[in-house]
């Protein structure tokens, strides 16, 4: 059809065609419809956030009508399911902190060392082996880590550490550390590799050794990405559920050692939801109060980590 139109195109037609304003395009309603529906899909994420905040806030407010926020945030005893009940969240928060601190103590040095090895020392061939291994480690479901903690790490630790309970914070912390190690290693590796080679070469030219180049030039230059990876990993450790539920136990307490059974915020949520908790009761509402606290803590960590990335990123070139 187009061909025929072309053939019949005459001089007068061409003159007329010149008058058509190509900026005036007709509205394509079909496309408009499709584009709007794609836009709607994009809005789903905003909607999801809204729903998460709304539901956590609504149920938490119901909870805070029955329990004063002061008792919740500063109480040192968490006995929500039995009488006399007590709703101090500090033991749960402390349990989460213990696991997170332990995991970070393990994962931050090893993760950073792995990242340095991958970006500064490993041959391309070695990288091609190690990177997939880290990715596989990152892809293993957390319930598998829970199994690993309970049947391998804990028995091993009990042989070495006297007085270690079957459920203990130490085993949970180590396994969570193993879990977040790949996050730190791969993200830090990306950050270190983004540091331009000219900086390294400059330092080598001045006679620096590889250790000095790494610790005084490369790591400081990639520090924003490295810090962001630490924060992301810590936020993952805080939200980690299955491994700590299986390994660390269900005893909310303010224990200072890693040897006893503790309970994290996430493990508490699992414990309650496994029982048949009626909707609307105070026990049901504690779920949302604890989850709300968890949400706020991880959100703050994520926002800070993004802020560090955007604010302190050294842009070379």
């Amino acid at each position: 059809m187009q061909m025929r139109e072309m053939e019949t195109l005459k001089h007068s037609d061409v003159n007329q065609a010149k008058k058509i304003d190509i900026r005036k395009t007709r509205v394509r309603w079909g496309e408009f419809l499709i584009e709007s529906s794609l836009g709607l899909c994009a809005m789903i994420s905003i909607f999801t956030t809204g729903v998460i905040i709304f539901i956590l806030a609504q149920e938490s407010l119901g909870f805070f009508e029955a329990v004063s926020p002061f008792d919740f945030f500063f109480g040192t005893s968490w006995v929500p399911l039995f009488e006399p009940s007590s709703y101090g969240v500090l033991p749960l928060l402390w349990g989460t902190m213990l696991i997170t601190i332990g995991a970070a103590l393990f994962a931050i040095p090893t993760g950073l060392a792995s990242a340095i090895y991958l970006s500064e020392y490993a041959s391309p061939r070695m990288r091609a082996v190690v990177k997939p291994v880290l990715e596989v480690l990152a892809g293993i479901p957390t319930v598998v880590y829970g199994y690993f903690a309970l049947t391998f790490v804990t028995p091993l630790l009990r042989k070495m550490v006297p007085g270690l309970e079957v459920f203990n914070a130490l085993s949970g912390a180590i396994v969570v550390g193993v879990m977040i190690l790949p996050t730190i290693a791969t993200l830090s590796d990306n950050a270190l590799r983004a540091v331009p080679d000219s900086l390294r070469q400059g330092a080598y030219a001045l006679g620096a050794t590889s250790l000095e180049v790494t610790t005084r030039v490369v790591v400081p230059a990639g520090l924003s990405g490295v810090m962001a990876s630490f924060l992301l990993a810590i936020s993952r450790a805080i939200g980690e559920t299955m491994a700590v539920t299986l390994a660390a136990g269900a005893t909310p307490n303010l224990s200072l050692t890693f040897l006893e059974s503790i309970q994290t915020m996430t493990a508490y949520i699992v414990q309650v939801s496994m029982g048949d908790t009626p909707a609307g009761g105070i026990a049901y509402q504690t779920l949302f109060a604890v989850a709300g606290l968890l949400f706020v803590i991880t959100l703050i960590l994520n926002i800070v980590s993004q802020w560090i990335l955007s604010k302190f990123r050294e842009v070379y070139e």
């Binding site: 994420s45 999801t48 956030t49 998460i52 956590l56 992301l232 936020s235 805080i238 939200g239 980690e240 559920t241 996430t266 949520i269 699992v270 989850a291 968890l294 949400f295 991880t298 959100l299 960590l301 994520n302 926002i303 993004q306």
Partner: peptide, 9 residues
């Protein structure tokens, strides 16, 4: 931020 919300939430 949604990607960083713990799965249990």
């Amino acid at each position: 931020n949604l990607a960083g919300v713990p799965s249990i939430v």
